[in-house]
Design a protein around this nucleic acid. Structure first.
Lengths: 339, 339
DNA sequence: TTGAAAGCGTTACCAG
DNA sequence: CTGGTAACGCTTTCAA
């Protein structure tokens, strides 16, 4: 049925070892036989069985991707296809494949990861969600299996790729302040992610720097893609300190906020200004187009793969991280406040 | 280093075959030894090597996913994470893994597919893009390899999962007509996809049914997520037959249209109404929330996997397709036109 | 109910 | 430069 290395060998009148050698290329084989074997492979439509190969070389040339639990909204964020694009590009360049974790809850996820790792299906793993106290992370560490995280982990000695979230949030807030805003609310996502903390930190720093007071009542956090958004936003606006601007940690959440504001008869940017994060594809498509912090999602993914290869090939070197630069892109969701 | 079936066997005082049997479970093994072996496996942290297993059983329990070329915008559409969620759920239920195609152009894609298929990395394949005359499709057919498409192919005898796009477009158009619109424009996506054709067809049928004229000048198609959108929309509106409503084949594109309209000083739904397709996550987050046709993307993915298993396990049965129902969800992008 | 041995398709080592 | 052989870790007859 399927043509193996032996078939090719027989047909070409050489030994299987020889065929194997011309496949890997590097060995010293006469040009003559090389050509002949190649021709036979072509004619017979031969392609090596990756399982057999992996079994002996102990490397699968595939990397495992651990995604957010698919039950979560995170999974639906357009952030995700974009990292995937970066990861895919880098993997492709090295001839690596991508194996995805399925699994909706932590239990299922753990199972698929174990299967990947111990089942020898992957050479390394990329963790796509930086949950605090992630059991998967603990497992990978204990196994001393090569992995890198996208997003900053709380633990030490872990290789990761991230943006400098506190600085970028600080700059974004500073921008709002320069635009004349004095009362700025912070809308963060799931507090289980470090990115939420970091951006809040940057926000606070900018406030402090400008001599503006920090009001805990002006920070909202949680899953803002769900229903609750409207009430939360309204509660916030009915406060004495009514904010004139919002710093929102995610473009999608910004859409939710804009929508909630609109229901209250408030327009962006006329009545309220918004700066968000991520600059996903739809940020420029929305109404109004969002002023948002570009975090180079593609690079996040691309660099994660680079770092992973580092860990795979030089397991002895110390863990490290790379920070991807960010950049505020001005569109139309912020209004300059006159004095 | 890594613990194999032999280690477990030795430790448990049985033969490797026995261990193999307790793993597969089904064979007749005394409860006594079963328990003992299980215990040893647990203690030693044994997990089967999938490569070795695949090599002999000739099945990898993983399905290959062929994605749109990652250079395309399609790739960034939130449609994608949602199908993936459906596919992942179904795969997980059966203990299957997912292997992703990387590859930015057709050449690279073909290569990764060949590696998956001939390299025996997957048991079957799901094609995520229904391009017309897809070379991958031709290859898969020739190889007689189990695969299913998400989206209707032009070719015959191919198993696929899709919505009834002509009917759903017809109903959506009819809805607009019932809302009092008489001049409706059609904005379609990439004409290389059958879905674009089908929806255009449904649009025409509804027009005809209502005795409204079909004006080719009122149909736009192409990659509307890119810059060109603004000019195209403006050109359309400067026509004699100025449309009061748009039927847009994708939510993301609808955002683009809304944005273009706004630049021209036109509001949705006050000045122009819009019905789009897909009901992706952000449809209800946008301003205004989109009236859109829900196509059950999750089901599309989920059912694709079901069908794939059918093909894998019963290769002899004829190709077939399943149609997922659609449903118009009314939100706020359509205004009723008074007589 | 269990064990021995062959074999899955490769690669790699050792001879020649 | 090339061939023979063992080994990778597992499943699956065939015997016992």
């Amino acid at each position: 049925m399927t043509v193996t290395i032996k078939d090719v060998a027989r047909e070409a009148g050489v030994s299987p070892s020889t065929v194997s050698r011309v496949i890997s290329g590097n060995s010293r084989i006469s040009e003559e036989t090389k050509r002949r074997v190649r021709k036979v492979m072509e004619e017979m439509g031969y392609h090596p069985n990756m399982n057999a190969r992996s079994l002996v070389v102990k490397s699968t040339e595939t990397i495992g991707l651990i995604m957010p639990r698919s039950a979560e909204n995170t999974f639906l964020n357009p952030f995700f296809p974009e990292v995937l694009r970066g990861i895919g590009a880098a993997a492709q360049e090295r001839g690596y494949s991508l194996l995805l974790s399925t699994g909706r809850d932590d239990g299922e996820k753990k199972e698929t990861v174990v299967k990947m790792v111990q089942g020898k299906q992957v050479d390394g793993v990329i963790l796509l969600n930086s949950r605090i106290r992630d059991p998967i992370l603990a497992y990978l560490k204990k196994q001393r299996f090569p992995f890198v995280m996208v997003g900053r982990p709380l633990e030490k000695n872990i290789t990761y790729v991230d943006n400098d979230n506190v600085t970028s949030a600080k700059e974004a807030t500073r921008y709002l302040i320069e635009m004349g805003h004095r009362s700025i609310a912070f809308v963060g996502g799931n507090p289980e992610y470090t990115v939420t903390h970091d951006r809040l930190e940057g926000y606070k720093e900018a406030l402090k720097e400008a001599g503006l007071p920090y009001h805990p009542s002006q920070v909202l956090s949680g899953d803002f893609l769900e229903e609750g958004a409207y009430e939360a936003v309204r509660a916030l606006l009915s406060l004495g300190q009514r904010p004139t601007a919002f710093l929102v940690t995610d473009d999608l959440m910004a859409l939710g906020v804009i929508s909630a504001l609109k229901e209250m008869g408030l327009n962006v940017p006329e009545d309220v200004s918004i700066v968000s994060f991520n600059n996903v594809f739809l940020a420029r498509l929305s109404s109004p187009p969002l002023t948002t912090v570009d975090i180079e999602i593609f690079q996040l993914g691309y660099q994660a793969v680079q770092k992973l290869f580092e860990r795979i090939h030089y397991p002895e070197i110390a863990s490290s991280h790379t920070l991807i630069k960010t950049c505020l892109v001005e569109r139309q969701s912020v209004r300059r406040l006159e004095k």
